[in-house]
């Protein structure tokens, strides 16, 4: 099975982010990492391989040269090769989907396995849009993935409001993954050294397609600090405080 795992370079979700005066993210002191949901997707691809399926895994990133760090990280985790779709543009979800779709048309993976969302913008858009552009089946928010033997399909369990839902999705397909699917491994040090010499291909985004941005980022603002809470001495006081707060609205 040929698997694509798109990975996004995002600020470390545990880092404190600052906004510059121009309303942009202050990236100077920021640490970047693979979007944790994408890391889970890559881990799942590795597990499918370890379960016996013959698998070729390609990590794909969209962005500039800085993304090479995250692609090398994916190679160290176990991806066989990496592709960087090179662009300096502040790409929105639609643009990313169009580029990925074009790459999928050329490379014909059986499965695109990716995070349900990225931790920086939390749009949850690229997976579904990609499936739409390719007219492939999709299963989102996967919490369990099993290869359906011989059927050339996957059984995907999703956690929905009132329980679990199990889908069978024919390949090729796009599957987006949720947090509880697995816990990514830590990488052995020799694998990090070996990743230096694994193939990493660069493709100019403009050679794939020239999409027009649909969304423009106007400004970022830091939310105002929250006013400190108040401890109520009794349930009665709590209720009257609550009532006063509601009345004030």
């Amino acid at each position: 099975m040929k698997i694509f795992t798109p990975i996004k370079r995002v600020p470390d979700p545990y880092a404190k982010v600052r906004v510059t005066e121009e309303g942009r993210l202050d990236s100077e002191d920021l640490k970047y990492t693979i979007n944790p949901f994408d890391e889970i997707a890559l881990e799942e691809a590795l597990r499918l391989r370890e379960a016996g399926e013959e698998t070729d895994i390609t990590a794909v990133a969209v962005g500039n040269e800085t993304c090479v760090d995250q692609l090398r990280q994916a190679l160290a985790m176990g991806a066989d090769r990496a592709i960087l779709i090179e662009t300096e543009a502040e790409a929105d979800a639609m643009m990313v989907s169009i580029w990925l779709a074009e790459l999928c048309r050329q490379e014909k993976p059986d499965l695109v396995l990716m995070g349900k969302q990225s931790t920086d913008e939390e749009n949850s858009q690229v997976g579904p849009r990609l499936a739409g552009l390719l007219q492939w089946g999709q299963a989102t928010f996967a919490s369990k993935i099993e290869a359906d033997e011989g059927a050339h399909a996957l059984r995907v369990t999703r956690e929905v409001e009132d329980g679990r839902e199990t889908l069978q999705v024919a390949l090729p397909a796009v599957v987006t993954v949720d947090l509880r699917l697995n816990e990514p491994r830590y990488v052995a040090l020799p694998a990090i050294l070996r990743a230096r010499s694994k193939p990493l291909q660069r493709i100019a985004a403009s050679d794939l397609a020239e999409p027009v941005p649909g969304i423009e980022l106007l400004a970022l603002e830091t939310p105002p600090p929250r006013a400190p809470g108040r401890m109520a001495a009794s349930l009665d006081e709590f209720c009257s405080l609550l009532q006063a707060a509601l009345n004030a609205r």
């Binding site: 090398r72 830590y186 052995a188 990090i192 050294l193």
Partner: peptide, 9 residues
């Protein structure tokens, strides 16, 4: 980056 990644590992 890969040395820092080793540290993370």
């Amino acid at each position: 980056a890969d040395e820092l990644f080793m540290a993370e590992s």
